[in-house]
């Protein structure tokens, strides 16, 4: 039983890492697209960010340096990640449910990190456990995280079933995903509450996992919750819920990618490569019957060829 628990956690951690990296690499390896930014762009000069302006507001914008306001970008990202600002701004009813859910997950990640760090520190020091303060903090954060995440996921699930607009666009997969959170994290919470006195809790399990101590007797309900939570973690990067990866690209590589070509060798090289790609589009004005390079497609003038 304990061996199964450890194995599922280890394999899930591996799947989560590999799948997340694989997804990020997949996105990053797409060819450089044409510019498609959307304003406001927060790395613009501070006096322009307020009204959503860009460097196109300056005369002869191509001359001189174009300073990039990284602080503005970080501030925007921090607000977006921590507070789900866009959702708060544009969809408040959903934010009331989604924000506690995400905040709960953040707290759980912090608490899990604290527990693992404590276990590692204990292993290195050769004695179990570390600072009581850290343990107390992790317990409080973890408890709050569990409550918020389960309540938030349940709130989202109910909202999806009751709101007419959401109901129409909800797939069985969406309901399953939210249900998965409620059940997995709910079981962890129930397992911790129902744990018999003296039975191992998260600290002992973390230490046992790191030491691969299969003699540990983990209570069944808690073990089931941890197994499901581990499977959930492995499942996330395989689905649209991996938006913690996708969002980096939708913002940085699309909405905010305002790098002009002028003098940028990397962009020029990417364009040169793309123009060698072979277009197979079949419509008469694009194709001459055979795949042709994009350079040739762009240079062609089908209207004049028609005329001839």
């Amino acid at each position: 039983m304990t061996l199964v628990l450890y194995s599922v956690i280890a394999v899930s951690a591996l799947v989560f890492t590999v799948a997340s990296v694989r997804r990020a690499v997949w996105y990053a390896r797409h060819p450089l697209h044409l510019r498609w930014e959307l304003y406001p762009v927060p790395h613009e000069a501070p006096d322009r960010v307020a009204h959503g302006g860009s460097y196109f507001e300056t005369s002869e914008w191509w001359r001189g340096d174009r300073p990039v306001n990284r602080v503005g970008e970080w501030m925007f990202m921090a607000r977006e990640i921590a507070l789900l600002h866009a959702l708060r701004e544009y969809n408040r009813p959903l934010w009331y449910r989604s924000f506690p859910f995400h905040l709960g997950l953040y707290l759980l990640i912090v608490a899990t990190g604290g527990v693992l760090a404590d276990a590692v520190a204990g292993m290195i020091a050769g004695r179990p456990g570390a600072a009581t303060l850290l343990r107390g903090g992790c317990a409080a954060i973890g408890t709050a995280g569990l409550v918020l995440a389960v309540a938030g996921a349940a709130g989202l699930l109910i909202y999806r079933r009751t709101d007419p607009a959401l109901r129409v666009s909800t797939t069985p997969g969406d309901l399953f995903n939210l249900g998965f959170f409620v059940v997995a994290l709910g079981l962890v919470g129930a397992g911790l509450l129902a744990r018999p006195a003296g039975a191992p809790g998260v600290w002992a399990i973390a230490e046992g996992l790191l030491r691969w101590d299969v003699t540990l007797q983990v209570p069944g309900l808690l073990a089931a919750g941890l197994v499901l939570s581990a499977l959930l973690a492995a499942y996330i990067p395989l689905t649209h819920m991996s938006h913690f990866i996708g969002k980096y690209f939708t913002y940085h590589a699309v909405r905010w990618d305002d790098r002009p070509l002028g003098g940028n060798r990397k962009i020029a090289a990417a364009l040169a490569e793309s123009l060698t790609y072979r277009s197979r589009w079949a419509a008469g004005h694009v194709s001459s019957g055979q795949p042709a390079s994009w350079a040739d497609v762009v240079a062609a003038n089908p209207a004049r060829e028609e005329q001839r």
């Binding site: 797409h30 060819p31 697209h33 498609w36 939708t250 590589a253 699309v254 790609y277 072979r278 277009s279």
Partner: peptide
């Protein structure tokens, strides 16, 4: 990739 490099990533 070859046919729609222009907007594939977004």
């Amino acid at each position: 990739r070859e046919d729609n490099w222009t907007f594939l990533q977004p």
